[in-house]
Design a binder for these strands. Structure first.
Lengths: 224, 224, 224, 224
DNA sequence: CATGAATGAGTATTCATTCAT
DNA sequence: AATGAATGAATACTCATTCAT
């Protein structure tokens, strides 16, 4: 495992170096792309400009991606991964469906907040994303919806939630999370994420939680 | 009233003919553009294709617009005008703020439904719309928000609504109307507009209407 | 010849009316064209603008010319006709070759002055004129040169002119007449045509007239 | 002097290579453009054709110029630079104003001859040249005129030239130099530059040089 | 005859992508 | 691996000309 395996360790080391470089380059490119995409959109972001912004050459970019569209997908993938990682993690282990739903919504909003550009791009650049990319996004949304939907159905079963259509309701929650990115131009001056989440959670729970359980979840209603 | 009038009536007639032709051409272009824009987006919609789709020549299109972007504005303006026409009209004369809000929301959703493509475009093509166009859209949204906001404040004053932040709440209603366009791919299989409006109105009013007035507005809660 | 021939006279009258209208229209178009051509050049003069400037419709212009180029040719033809009319007329009947040359040069310069735009166009828009048009212009110039050349050869034969190459010399005189149009931007502030002609005639005759005849043509040398 | 210099020398080398390539490309484009412009004029010279003629791609052309018009300016600038370089150099150090004028005129004609196409373009494509380009050309001409004008005034002061208007006279000399390009179609069959210069210098000096100095400058009068 | 709306061929310019160094 | 010059397909827009009214 040590010196005898010198060659292997050497190439392992080289592999590691290579991998590290790839990661580093990707990071440069992705962060530059995110910046430019949010400022100018996909069409107006020129590969030339991206190279300048990332501090690499045009050729180097094409060493890491095959197509301009790939860059967009990469940025959008980033937020997808975050959703997949953060939202279930935040909900996991919470028995009470109301609290679980609240935790999920809160986590979702926080991911949106930390990837606002990407969240916006998913709406704005649909037409620039390939069919597969688009379908992956839709799939993800259906997935997230089902997390919310599960909570809602559990809650209804326990009588904690009033009777609603789980599909629209969960889609609505997703929408309200995205809203933080979509309407940021309007909301930004009045709220920060925390406050936004509080307000929307209050709005949601007041609607969903059945009259005889509202008292229990009073803390979710608080608006400041 | 004869000779002088004859000429005047003639030129009036010609003016009318001209105006009618302009309207007709604009209609052709507008509807073809709406179709192509929703299928392919702004960038991929070629003027050549638009001309073919509209059944006119490229030159003719440029007799009615100055820039490709103008075509996008045309489509977006169309929905803006509809909002401005329909929403206030639907709310006018309704004293009760709860009913007025419901009427406004319903009207807004119906406009979205009848201009689904354009409503979507307003989100997708932001980056292709000129600063002025973008500002007009934002202005419109602020305007609509304030209609809703007024109802909410009236309702709170009368004790019919619980205490909420009018800004987020009105923005949320707008968002939920837009949602019908944004999430149509998901909602379409399960609902039609009517049902969608009913569900969302139920969701909204359950949250907003204060406990001691819920009975009065029971008809808004109905979900089928 | 009188009343019995009523029909014929009628159609003759109509012909005359038609001819008069044609002339009138042509006049409108030509003067508008001359104005626009001198301001913007051939390429930038749009038929649409010409129609507006001439106060007629686009269609009407095409009733009188077949091609945009025809308009240019018409304007240039105008000056050609003037040359053909004025220059020989001014020289005719003058026996003395020195005086004849002076009269021809003077007449040429005056035609250039009264058709400055057209004279300029003949140089600027060569590339917009068809081969035939171009050849007609060159033919005309050769023609004019030969008028001058004849005088020069006569003068040399009579010992009034020194020995020179008639071809270059006549071409030079033509050039100096055109110069009034070509360098008008520079000369305009300092001279009027009369003075310009005087100066150039002085320059020319001082060079051409042989020493022992200079006294006789002293009036041509005067510079003010 | 070693490591730091190594890098510096490297980048110097790369800079030099780059500069050389730019020069080479510019040369390709310039000469191809000159050829096409003289054949077809500015409007009819297509960028596509220019690329083919220059043996590069369309894109490459646009790496070196911003606009089609820039190509025209490139060609015209080339002759302007030649005038500025050659004419003063030829006149410099010559005390005698008559000889200096002759040297200047000769140099000017030779530049015209070696850039005949460009000299012609300056007249033909005025309307396609930007205001700045046009003004640069006029400025240059005024400059050249003043070189000639200075000689003429010196000569008059010394009694070597007769009294003339320096402005028209110098402009006339400039015109006669340009004439070699403008009337090349006519003069070409009869003269070469040398002979043309000789003839025109003879014409000019016979007119300008005062009677009692003509003997001294007899060599300028020679016509073959 | 006059009109002017409609036509559509023609072209400068852009920019993702490649590949020799 | 990295570079960036070269490539050329793709596309919005113009404007002379036509022809139905």
């Amino acid at each position: 495992m040590s010196q005898s395996d010198g060659t292997s360790r050497n190439s392992e080391g080289m592999e590691a170096v290579r991998a590290a470089r790839v990661e580093w380059r990707m990071g440069q490119i992705l962060s530059a792309a995110t910046r430019l995409l949010s400022q100018q959109g996909f069409q107006k972001m020129l590969i030339t400009d991206l190279a300048k912004e990332a501090g690499v050459s045009v050729g180097t970019i094409y060493q890491y991606v095959d197509t301009k569209e790939d860059i967009l997908l990469l940025v959008v993938n980033d937020i997808i991964e975050s959703y997949r990682r953060e939202v279930p993690a935040a909900m996991e282990g919470i028995e009470d469906p109301v609290e679980r739903l609240a935790a999920g919504f809160r986590a979702y909003c926080l991911v949106v907040d930390s990837h606002r550009t990407a969240a916006l791009l998913a709406y704005q650049e649909t037409k620039s994303i390939s069919r597969e990319g688009r379908e992956r996004l839709m799939q993800l949304e259906i997935e997230t919806n089902s997390y919310f939907s599960d909570c809602i159905q559990d809650g209804m079963r326990l009588g904690k939630f009033v009777q609603v259509e789980p599909a629209v309701t969960s889609a609505t929650l997703t929408m309200l999370a995205h809203m933080w990115a979509l309407k940021h131009w309007y909301l930004n001056s009045m709220f920060d994420v925390k406050l936004y989440i509080q307000n929307q959670l209050s709005f949601i729970t007041k609607s969903l939680v059945s009259a005889d359980h509202q008292q229990v979840y009073a803390h979710l209603f608080a608006t400041d």
